[in-house]
Amino acid sequence: MSEFAKTLQGFIDHMPDGRRKREFETALKLCPEIEVEVVTEERANKSMKSVREGALKTGHAFVIARAGKVDRLEQAAFVLSSDTILALIGSIRENTERTAARRRPASALLAQLKPMDPSLVNMRLSPRSEEETVGGRGRVF
């Protein structure tokens, strides 16, 4: 679990059971590795420019916390609404929370395929040579 996910998980654990909590839990399961660095408010005040530049350079998210770590909402200097956080996760992974509902197991890709002639087992792709590439598809050129 990424630092980002761990940080959010602390909040989610304290959310009342319901649709919103389930959305968060699903989104976090699908969330890619997003690293988050928690910096103290003191450091942020002194070097906001370098924090911003670091975020742009590394792509890491930064959370600015008054006490150096975020374990209660009131300790966070900037608080995002749950909608904003879900949208953030979704935008990172192509609207994850919406696609979650229609995710299919990987092997579902095989469902529409039927076993073909056994003689094809050893058929392999051959490297396409330049001579074949030029006008290779006679019907096109």
Binding site: T99, A106, P115, M116, P118
Partner: peptide, 27 residues
């Protein structure tokens, strides 16, 4: 190419095993 043949070649078996590894078609 091997998956399309559906002749239990390693690539197809990899795809079948992907479920157990928590992979989805979207991945």
């Amino acid at each position: 190419f091997d998956i399309i043949k559906r002749r239990n070649l390693d690539a197809e078996l990899w795809l079948e095993a992907a479920d157990a590894r928590g992979l989805y078609a979207d991945d």
